[in-house]
Amino acid sequence: MHKARTNPFNTMGMHGALILYTLIALFPVFVILINSFKARKAIFREPLALPDSDSFSLIGYQTVMRQGDFFLYFQNSMIVTVASLFFILLFGAMAAYALAEYRFKGNLLMGLYLALGIMIPIRIGTVAILEMMVATGLVNTLWALILVYTAQGLPLAVFILSEFMRQVSDDLKNAGRIDGLSEYTIFFRLVLPLVRPAMATVAVFNMIPIWNDLWFPLILAPAEKTKTLTLGSQVFIGQFVTDWNAVLSALSMAILPVLILYVIFSRQLIRGITSGAVK
């Protein structure tokens, strides 16, 4: 490893900037968190004050727990996000490998076609998607959401992953072929572990939009038993009155699972970055 310039002022400046950025990024989250533990009046009187013995209240959380099937929404969101990510990564990586590794007719065209999806937002096709889901009877199932999110995530996944897969050493794959490994083993055991950082990047990119999406749950799966967290929280936002305690509590709880997923993926990211740097 080479030593970077270790001028203490540089280091301090760098850390200062990073800390400042962290504070700015975390501030809204912090405000949501503290206010979710306050009584309604206190939220509006002093939004930035920490909850004290006077203003402390769990009313928001109690409302959320009482109202509807919060845990079911939670579970739905989790299932949809994790399943979509799984399929995006699996199919994205497989398609990327085929495009990067094998020479076949229309390889380039296929790559371009798949990349086209990056530029065209999937919501343009909402009506057609809804018709298809109605025709196949998938409306108001989680599968409807999973399929749509998988389709939405695939183009970018294929694009990013195929670029990385091209960089995996040909010799390594050939060594596997000579040793009698099947193409599937080569893909899963040799290639995938080497593009893990790219997979984590793709996962992080896709995770937040899926978790936060309101559009497709509202259109494709608004039924009580398939509501996602984002959609479920909408009951607290009315046209005339909004139950801020409940909204803030729901949001606070919604942060947790994404945070956990992010920690899992980012560990891969960091490992990938450092292992690439020290060649």
Binding site: S169, L172, N174, P193, L194
Partner: peptide
């Protein structure tokens, strides 16, 4: 390749990292 009775040594070693 695996059934040809050959073995190959590559310029980049190509060892299995795992």
């Amino acid at each position: 390749p695996s059934k040809r009775g050959i073995a190959m040594v590559f310029q980049t070693y190509a060892l299995y990292p795992h």
